[in-house]
Amino acid sequence: MNILKVDDLKKTYVSRLGTNRVDALKGVFFSVEEGEYVAIMGESGSGKTTLLNILAALDKPTGGSVLLKGKNVVDIKESDMAVFRRDNLGYVFQDFNLIDSFSIRDNIFLPLVLKGEKHKEMNAKLEPIAKELGISDLLDKYPYEVSGGQKQRAAVARAIITKPQLLLADEPTGALDSKSTDELLEVFENINKTGQTILMVTHSTKAASHAKRVLFIKDGIVFHELYRGEKSFEEMYKAISDTLTLLSQGGK
């Protein structure tokens, strides 16, 4: 069943004086099945972050529709967006976006507190997730006291604690060293195994090779698509690299 359906999505940026128009998205079509793990790849400026921001209801498209479980995200009123995000989406940022004034525990609790959940329920939800992500011992520390990899795992915990329909990740490994990257990708895979749908934007071939499907965006449209199928990581890695080489040579 489709959990997400993106239909002819367009986004045009107009400079303040209206003289300069940039088409970031020219008509993007794709859909995501429930329980899928999709990576979106593309070079800087290809429009992938714009796409993710629209999916996360952080930005409005110029045209087209985004159906999340049949509900058009584009039509949601500005004032209801935050609540919609809170209830349906989890978001992992490149630079973690943990709040310095909260301990790791409170950072993870934030969306639940906003939902008005009881402290006991929150704790019950946190425990297995913290164990799974290996951050049980860090919960009472503050973001500036832990490493980048630990921060990102905390951010993942915050994103999945609400059991969102869709977990969106924007270059989640972008600010991590290779060891932390491996750990985080393993975390993503494990989460996906539990049935969590993941949509990740990245330009790291390694990160993308862990996904079940990779979409390539170039010049504002979905250019190509790769399914992992029965491929191993190494085979997938090679297939992605080849596609990227082809793309950069401008071939079709």
Partner: peptide, 16 residues
Amino acid sequence: ASSYKTMRSVGMTVKE
């Protein structure tokens, strides 16, 4: 400012 930006993206409404 950045904390509030994060809170908004996590799902905090302007009213909250």
